[in-house]
C-alpha cells in the first residue's frame, strides 16, 4: 500500500485517498474555439510517463482536500506533495 504525503495531514495510507489522474491539466480558456481534435486532446489525452508524474490526489477519508503530488510510476516513490494551483517544486523532476 502506498504511503501518501498529504500536504496538510502528513503520511497516510493509500486507502484514505481518491486518485485524480494527471495534475496541471487546465480547462481550455475558450472551449468553443477548439477544433474537435483539440477538444479530444483536452478530454482524453493524458501523459502516461514511465518515470516522474505530477498527479492529483484527494484525501477523501481525511481532510477532504485535493492536492498535487509528484510520484515515480516505477518505484512509486513520492518526490513532492503540494497544494493545488501551485507549480511542482523545481527539485521534483517534473517541469510543468
Amino acid at each position: 500500500m502506498l504511503s501518501i504525503p498529504c500536504p496538510w495531514c502528513g503520511l497516510r495510507d493509500e486507502t484514505e485517498f481518491h486518485y485524480g489522474g494527471q495534475a496541471h491539466v487546465a480547462y481550455p480558456a475558450d472551449p468553443a474555439a477548439l477544433s474537435d481534435a483539440e477538444w479530444a486532446g483536452y478530454l482524453f489525452l493524458r501523459d502516461n510517463p514511465k518515470g516522474w508524474f505530477a498527479e492529483r490526489w484527494f484525501h477523501s477519508a481525511g481532510c477532504r482536500r485535493w492536492f498535487n503530488a509528484v510520484r515515480h510510476t516505477v518505484t512509486y516513490e513520492f518526490a513532492a506533495a503540494y497544494p493545488p494551483f501551485t507549480p511542482p517544486p523545481k527539485a521534483s523532476g517534473v517541469s510543468r
Binding site: 500500500m1 493509500e14 486518485y19 502516461n48 514511465k50 498527479e55 510510476t73 516505477v74
Partner: peptide, 13 residues
C-alpha cells in the same frame, strides 16, 4: 490499482 504505474506490483489492500 487506481494509480498510474509501471511497477508490475500493486497495493496489498
Amino acid at each position: 490499482d487506481v494509480y498510474n504505474g509501471y511497477g508490475q506490483r500493486g497495493s496489498f489492500h
